[in-house]
Write a protein that binds this DNA or RNA. Structure first.
Length: 138
DNA sequence: GCCAACGTTGGC
DNA sequence: GCCAACGTTGGC
């Protein structure tokens, strides 16, 4: 199983909306970056991801699960190569993990989230996943 | 194929 | 609101 981080501006799509979407989840559309696209195409059903609020909050607030693997993004123009996946909310973190906390943790110095801060869908390693979960109170 | 200009993202 | 990072576009 692989791990990911999904960024969303809560103004556009928040964790609350993700939870309300329930077991049906939502299509993670709108990715327009090739690195993020490649990550998305690696995502398998059952993979988990952190749900991160960018700009407002700047913290990891929950965990989502991939329920449908990459397929053509319906919001892309015809002929464009973009894809999306479906994800559903799994559980909230008892204590959100802020960007500041990630930066302050020496073991997370190499996390892709920090290395490529503009990437909207970075990968998370097994070790990083376990550590951030623990920092979040799980 | 290189690189400057420009647009966008996201942290501060 | 500003700025750094960085992806994309377009001229050469």
């Amino acid at each position: 199983m692989a791990y990911w981080l999904l960024k969303s501006e809560p103004d556009a799509w928040s964790w609350d909306q993700m939870v309300k979407a329930g077991a049906k989840g939502t299509a993670w559309t709108g990715i327009r970056n090739h690195t993020a696209k490649l990550n998305m195409m690696k995502m398998k059903k059952g993979d988990r991801g952190f749900f991160y609020h960018s700009n407002i909050g700047k913290e990891i607030v929950g965990i989502v699960e991939v329920i449908k693997e990459a397929y053509p993004d319906p919001t892309a123009k015809a002929g464009e190569p973009w894809v999306c996946v479906d994800v559903k909310a799994v559980e909230a973190l008892p204590r959100p993990v802020t960007l500041a906390a990630i930066k302050a943790e020496p073991k997370l110095a190499d996390i892709q989230v920090l290395k490529q801060s503009r990437l909207s869908l970075p990968a998370i390693t097994d070790a990083e996943w376990k550590l951030v979960r623990k920092m979040g109170g799980l």
